[in-house]
């Protein structure tokens, strides 16, 4: 997995609540058996019209935000299905960090597995970052995972929380499966205990 340490980039404002996984990547793109290549279809139905032309008003189609690496959004981001195609599409587009007042549980988890940092902040602070993002391409923000701080284009510093284990995995680019495999002795012994206590499983 790609490491995440600090990110200095353009933030795109998406002031919508309940952005669901069908909006992030509509189901017609779930038929792939690969992880790559979904970025062009990120937010497909908001981004393109019926003929496949870009809708100029949509934030990621605006020249200032085409290279956004950070997304600032409304409450309950990523609700809906468990499809990992949603973070895959986000990552493939080039976004590595999402800030919102809250995230749906499975989506939040899926982000960490794909080198994306989701940051939940109180509404007032998200509003501040939203206003900063609306300034356009020159307004670059810095996200420093080590220090757990976001610095706005004006130099204001906002601290954020992140689970220590997830932070560690993200910063080192660690593969969860490899980590768990190191615990195979514990899994073996659990299995032999369970074979006694719950043999019907």
């Amino acid at each position: 997995m790609e490491k995440f340490t600090t990110l200095h980039g353009i933030a795109a404002p998406l002031p919508l609540i309940n952005v669901d996984t069908d909006m992030i990547i509509p189901k017609q793109f779930l038929k792939t058996i690969k992880r790559e290549g979904l970025g062009v279809n990120l937010f497909d139905e908001m981004r393109y019209d019926d003929d496949g032309n870009e809708i100029p008003g949509f934030v990621l189609n605006q020249p200032a935000y085409r290279d956004a690496e950070i997304l600032i959004a409304g409450d309950n981001f990523g609700c809906g299905s468990s499809r990992e195609h949603a973070p895959w599409a986000i990552k493939d587009f080039g976004i590595r960090c999402i800030v919102a007042p809250s995230f749906a549980d499975i989506f939040y988890n899926n982000c960490f597995k794909n080198g994306i940092l989701p940051i939940a902040l109180p509404q007032e602070q998200v509003d501040k970052l939203m206003a900063d993002a609306e300034k356009g391409a020159n307004a670059r923000m810095t996200v420093d995972l080590e220090r757990q701080e976001i610095t706005t284009s004006e130099g204001e510093v906002i601290a954020f929380e992140v689970d220590a284990f997830r932070k560690h995995c993200l910063m080192e680019g660690l593969d969860d499966i490899g980590l768990t495999m190191e615990k195979s002795a514990a899994i073996d012994s659990y299995e032999s205990r369970a074979a006694q206590s719950r043999p019907w499983v």
Binding site: S82, R83, E84, P87, I106, N109, N110, K113, N114, D176, I177, T180, M181, S184, I187
Partner: peptide
Amino acid sequence: GTSEVEHVLAT
């Protein structure tokens, strides 16, 4: 998610 599907399959 799919990464976790892989994780459960393997472990």
